[in-house]
Design a protein around this nucleic acid. Sequence first.
DNA 1: TTAGGATATGAATAAGTGTTCATATATTAT
DNA 2: ATAATATATGAACACTTATTCATATCCTAA
Lengths: 116, 116
Amino acid sequence: MTNCNHEEEHAFAAARAKMNMPKEEEVVSLATAFKAVSEPSRLKILFALRQGEMCVYHITEAVGGTQSAVSHQLRILRDNRIIKARRDGQNVVYSLADAHVVALLSLACEHLSCKF
Amino acid sequence: MTNCNHEEEHAFAAARAKMNMPKEEEVVSLATAFKAVSEPSRLKILFALRQGEMCVYHITEAVGGTQSAVSHQLRILRDNRIIKARRDGQNVVYSLADAHVVALLSLACEHLSCKF
DNA sequence: TTAGGATATGAATAAGTGTTCATATATTAT
DNA sequence: ATAATATATGAACACTTATTCATATCCTAA
């Protein structure tokens, strides 16, 4: 604790870290966004939407589960701007929000050495 | 439900989605990794480690909180290969696991239009 | 081997979250 | 306006999880 082998370097790093640390509010916002993609049921929805936009019924068909559960998850993804929605008649059509989301998914897969 | 305005396209997309959907086990693994970076306290640790490797004491100093809490979070990050550890005498020095993690953080920031 | 500092961990409690069920809202057709 | 289909949502329960407290483990110095 007061006996670090690299006191100087680590102390400097810690000081820089404090200086550059995003505000609590920003950290929470970031964490919330990550949390949005950290549930299997929501991840499945994202993988499904990689194949193209879909309405709630077909998303439900693609990922399984009940319409209600899917709808709740879509809400969370939407609130976090991971996906976007547009109404089309009786249907609401969902799609991935932007290229960042696609990149994020690819990156994560790469990290885990999976090939989707 | 049985009355989708884009029955054909969506049905095809749903079919492709089912075909290309990662296995349950893989989805869970991915979700778990995202979950690891979806808590403010853990995100702060990652931001801190962007400034260079640090031992537990200095990480605690950089992010705040108790040693015990930080240690618990380090464990989770380590288990998910988000960070790596090496012992150096009495200290354990932590650093970001790989370039994917760095890229992931940058991407997330970009998505939220923040500039860290 | 003993003492002291550095890090890790088990148990418990408190807070957060996903799903289900029932129901509400919205849109189209009649 | 009414009926039917599609989607959304509030409440409740079960489950997960972060933190704290106490303590254990690991390492170095003497």
